[in-house]
Write a protein that binds this DNA or RNA. Sequence first.
DNA 1: GCAAGGATTGAATGGTGGTTCAATCCTTGC
DNA 2: GCAAGGATTGAACCACCATTCAATCCTTGC
Lengths: 191, 191
Amino acid sequence: MKARLSASRERIIAAALEIMAERGYAGCSVAAVAERAGLATGSVYRHFPTKADLVAEVFRTASQREVDAVARAAALETTVAERVSAVIETFAGRALRSPRLAYALLAEPADPAVDAERLVFRRAYAELIADYVAEGVAKGELPPQDPELTATALVGALAEAMVGPLAAGVVGPRTIPHLITFLHRALGVSP
Amino acid sequence: MKARLSASRERIIAAALEIMAERGYAGCSVAAVAERAGLATGSVYRHFPTKADLVAEVFRTASQREVDAVARAAALETTVAERVSAVIETFAGRALRSPRLAYALLAEPADPAVDAERLVFRRAYAELIADYVAEGVAKGELPPQDPELTATALVGALAEAMVGPLAAGVVGPRTIPHLITFLHRALGVSP
DNA sequence: GCAAGGATTGAATGGTGGTTCAATCCTTGC
DNA sequence: GCAAGGATTGAACCACCATTCAATCCTTGC
């Protein structure tokens, strides 16, 4: 019974994730999520007090997955330059592979609860990067700078450079290398 | 009569602008706009076929004003480095002076029509900056690069660095100088 | 087996806010 | 002055969903 309950909860989240990846936040009505999860609308409310709570959790799950993937890729590298390259490539690669989801996570209009999560999500990237930057500064790989601000600006540049392409549907083949060059210069990676 | 008609239209836009600057997109119900403009709700529909059209136009007006201010400030300068500094200072200064409006223009959840305008808005900044970058590259002030991409990334970095502070309500005194340093490096301005 | 109690259902409820429209008011040309 | 025609009004309408809840179904402990 307990098992069934938590299985339902999982199914709800999984269903919402799928819908989010297909139709974005806009498609996530409670009725649609319930239907895909194979439950009645009302049953969703046995697991989540409110729709905002459900969506926030889904959002958190999805974005954590992204941040983890990026962190994992970056951890395989050693220098700041390589790590930043890995961040950009992983971030962009995943975004382009699931454009609808990427748009939902990065920019799609949603309710305030989701907005709050979005700030957290971007902040998580920024923290990750800030650590690398701080390390790079400490090791003399990078010139002195405010790691927090650098990381925030880097995340903004990366996200913005993706949003256009995500809306348009195509990315030039040189976009990613150019972005790497731009951000390496911004960090002050010695050439 | 004609004059009265277009005066009403202006009043509607002005009212919506005021509300947007005070309460953001969320406060812009048709009823609220009509009331502030001193008209009945229904009258709004004599001037705009749909709420989305109204809001899109208001958005366009507000963002054009911002872009113009930034362009004007940048035009007073001569080198790319100075122009970019002017862009950052003007953009950030204005955002901090009207934080609610800045948030509405940059990030507030809204309907798809507004989203489309937001892309246009950001693109307008990017175009402006792309021209300066192209000029800088041509003059040898900057290393070779893709001006479009550079400009997009620059806008993203700037916007992202502002959104956090706008949400929090405060900006550290060193934020803007640091941002200038970061973006000068990113462009490859020679030190 | 068999109640008891929680899980599940899905139709009904309610609130919000954009949109419409018949009635009314003004302006304008004669 | 005075009709005609467009402008204005604002209450009513409607669509859309989140949320609820009385009825029903299962599981479980005895």
